[in-house]
């Protein structure tokens, strides 16, 4: 029997670490005015992108992002054996329709805003397990589709509590490949980045019920994954150049740092949060950005570039998800959180 690749409680180490070879990001108008504007591939001026509904626009963004990441390599959709991804809507409808158009074998995923990390984790497992050679991982969210599913109609005049976050309109796609399949195929955008290991998240619920305070609902799950990851890998927090969380926002980040300190883990020096990076301080978004697309676009634009250009050599990328449902909330349920993590390292 083959030896297990799991180490400790729930961390997997890849024997032949899959490579990250390309990525693409598409964002909406407001994200395009944020501090990372220069890093995105495409910024939409109009959030409907010429479609008759926002859902269709989000789907078009999903398809275009995957094709864009492939076109950077000179590849077509036939080059991929698997597409992994999801979004925030019921029946992950955006990803499903995008996969219909792309025609790539599709594993649809839902773990709220931690979908990007989940897709990278499973995609890496598939490649390291020799089940596929090349895969695309993508996640999307759209402010206008998420608002109407989770909150109020857009034109409804209400105020946001100060803990609220704004759903990012954006899609991030990343192309993974094994070593052999990567070389000899066109130009690789990223030549040095590998996914070396990953930790599966557990659903953690500390009883937060406020749907406008997702950061606080997700922080305990993030803390749980960090703690387990460091224990499983026998590493200290400062092993990483950056511990990147998905969309905890300003308040959630504060809670995470506090919770980690209680566990004896000091992350205040190297922790960054995509939700805090995606919008600027003058953009009136309360506690920052959120949504599947938040960590996906920041990873596929900003973070991978920092890794490739030798600013960083290893990061823990941990997208965080609040597994809330408006129905369950009305029935008095609390909001569970989850956080999956993967380690991205640059070869020296």
């Amino acid at each position: 029997m083959a030896q297990t690749k799991r180490q400790g409680e729930r961390t997997v180490f890849f024997e032949t670490p899959p490579r990250v070879i390309s990525s693409a990001s598409i964002v909406g108008d407001m994200e395009g005015k944020g501090p990372l504007a220069a890093a995105y591939d495409l910024i939409l001026e109009d959030d409907t992108w010429g479609e008759s509904s926002w859902e269709k626009a989000e789907c078009k963004m999903f398809v275009t992002a995957v094709k864009l990441a492939l076109s950077k390599l000179g590849w077509s959709t036939d080059s991929l054996q698997c597409l992994l991804g999801g979004d925030l809507l019921n029946q992950i409808v955006v990803a499903n329709y995008a996969a219909r158009e792309l025609g790539i074998p599709f594993l649809g995923l839902y773990s709220a805003c931690s979908t990007m990390a989940e897709s990278l984790l499973i995609g890496s497992m598939l490649i390291d397990g020799c089940f596929v050679e090349r895969a695309a991982c993508a996640a999307s969210s759209h402010f206008s589709t998420a608002e109407r599913q989770y909150r109020y109609p857009l034109e409804m005049g209400t105020t946001n509590p100060p803990t609220a976050q704004r759903t990012v309109t954006g899609v991030g796609a990343v192309i993974l490949s094994n070593e052999q399949a990567a070389s000899g195929y066109g130009s690789e955008i990223f030549t040095k980045i590998h996914i070396t290991c990953g930790t599966m998240g557990k659903v953690v619920d500390m009883g937060i019920t406020d749907a406008s305070n997702m950061g606080a609902a997700m922080a305990p799950a993030a803390c749980n994954t960090i703690k387990t990851h460091l224990a499983d890998t026998h590493r200290a927090a400062d092993y990483y150049d950056a511990i990147v969380t998905g969309d905890l926002g300003r308040f959630g980040s504060e809670m995470l740092i506090e919770l980690c300190l209680d566990e004896g883990i000091k992350i205040s020096k190297n922790h960054i949060d995509c939700g805090n990076l995606v919008f600027g301080p003058n953009q009136d978004v309360d506690c920052g950005g959120s949504g599947c697309g938040c960590s996906a676009v920041v990873l596929s634009s900003h973070l991978l570039k920092l890794l490739e250009t030798e600013t960083w050599s290893k990061i823990l990328f941990m997208a965080t998800g609040a597994l809330m449902s408006p129905q369950a909330s009305l029935q008095g349920e609390t909001i569970p959180g989850i956080a999956h993590a993967v380690v991205l390292e640059r070869d020296n």
Binding site: T163, M206, N213, F251, M255, E258, C287
Partner: peptide
């Protein structure tokens, strides 16, 4: 934790 969140929330 809920008490801490309540105290610290903006």
């Amino acid at each position: 934790y809920r008490e801490l969140v309540k105290q610290r929330s903006p």
